[in-house]
Design a protein around this nucleic acid. Structure first.
Lengths: 237, 237
DNA sequence: GCATCCGATTTGGTATACCAAGGTGGTGTA
DNA sequence: TACACCACCTTGGTATACCAAATCGGATGC
């Protein structure tokens, strides 16, 4: 039969990616191919392949001849939020025209299943996953795969900070309600309202995130996180 | 290979990319790592690295266990045009707020220098390059690197067909005039007009491109180009 | 005591050998 | 003649050896 077991490269990519997104590998941390080879018990060939894919995703980057886990860059976070406003705002307008009621209901069902308060586990992780999934699924209703890819790529780059957005139950509840409101407008085929609510949600969430990041940056840096402030360029290490 | 500045991998990536974009490697053509190794006189390691980067760019893709040059996909072209409308339309609105007069004048100077009839190279190549550069530079005026990346990625995926848009001197003149009109609105700090003109330009150009592609698809296929016809709606993942 | 130079070590870049899986063609049999 | 089977060969996946450049440390000379 075919590959029931994923190839070493895929496994390694998944494990490295998970380690970066969980902040197990800190932003700004230096990576060496031979170090990863030892840590993950694979040879350099799959290590290099995984690094290449993560580089394309923006999760690692070159630092001179070497590699670093991409630092958290406040300017990049703002830029990605603007991109999401543009893409998701247009996508939901397309969804008003193209998505069937059943398509919308399916996304609504996912949203309802992820209503805050259900289930235990890590609330923050749950909130991050639910939020990322919601925005990707919503964009998918546009029927435009290029927009889905753009949104997914942005959400990936933002994944390491989004847990800050959903730290409190109140924040999770607000996000859920705003998501629900967008879907309501979409169900009512009200493109202007849906787009306005969605872009407002993205902008508001981002504003709160940047505020939290700025407030906590000293403490986060103390935990070993490299956070690139707004103005100056990258000064790794 | 004595070039000290560019590594083998970068050189190979550039040459492969050029071969794909120039249609020297036909869309849909099967690629083997060992074949490329022989054709480009490099070992498999840089070949694999280059293929990985081109895969991330969408210029090659996996086909089972092997590789193919990405076919030209009419649905993808339409989707990318929609993405560009959303991103570039928003970017020019940001540019109205953020770009200095000098920034805008610099882009205008580039546009004037690329006025149809000037310069060298074949007219079509010239038109493709000028168009791609213009849209990227225009997006750059937004000050948002994520938007620039999104537009550049879309233009890369579209590069193999854009020559069809600018086949005739009349088409090149029209594109140039529409570009100029966007810049005029931007100089006048008229966000609504700039965004409307730009999205209309992107949509109109794309419509003409799709019409030309549909009309010529038989002949193009005869030249060995694999063109994927309009596919059914999205059901990925 | 300080600066400088040199060499050992570490690093990514490259070439290549080996492996397993899948496809192909030929051959032998019914 | 048609079909089934098997050997071979091509392919991507992986491991690893070697190289050049950069770095770091210590020894040396002023």
């Amino acid at each position: 039969m075919t590959n029931v077991l994923a190839s070493q490269t895929v496994q390694l990519y998944d494990r490295l990616r998970a380690a970066i997104l969980s902040l197990d590998l800190a932003p700004g941390e230096r990576l060496t191919e031979r170090g990863l080879e030892a840590s993950f018990d694979a040879s350099r060939t799959p290590v290099r392949a995984a690094l290449g894919r993560l580089d394309a995703e923006g999760l690692v980057q070159r630092d001179g001849r070497g590699w670093i886990v991409s630092p958290i860059d406040l300017a990049e976070i703002g830029a990605l939020a603007e991109l999401r406003e543009a893409v998701e705002g247009a996508a939901v307008r397309l969804a008003v025209q193209r998505a069937t009621d059943a398509d919308i209901a399916a996304v609504a069902a996912l949203l309802d299943a992820a209503r805050p308060g259900e289930g235990g586990g890590t609330d923050a992780e749950q909130g991050v996953r639910a939020g990322g999934d919601f925005h990707e699924q919503l964009t998918r209703l546009s029927g435009n795969p290029a927009m889905v890819d753009a949104v997914r790529g942005a959400m990936t780059r933002l994944a390491r900070t989004r847990w800050l957005e959903v730290r409190t139950p109140a924040a999770r509840e607000q996000a859920w309600l705003e998501h629900r409101a967008v879907l309501n407008a979409l169900e009512a085929r009200d493109a202007d309202t849906a787009s306005r609510l969605l872009t407002g949600h993205i902008r508001g969430t981002n504003d709160r995130l940047l505020a939290a990041l700025a407030a906590d940056s000293r403490r986060l840096r103390g935990h070993g996180l490299a956070i690139v402030p707004d103005a100056p360029p990258v000064t790794p290490r």
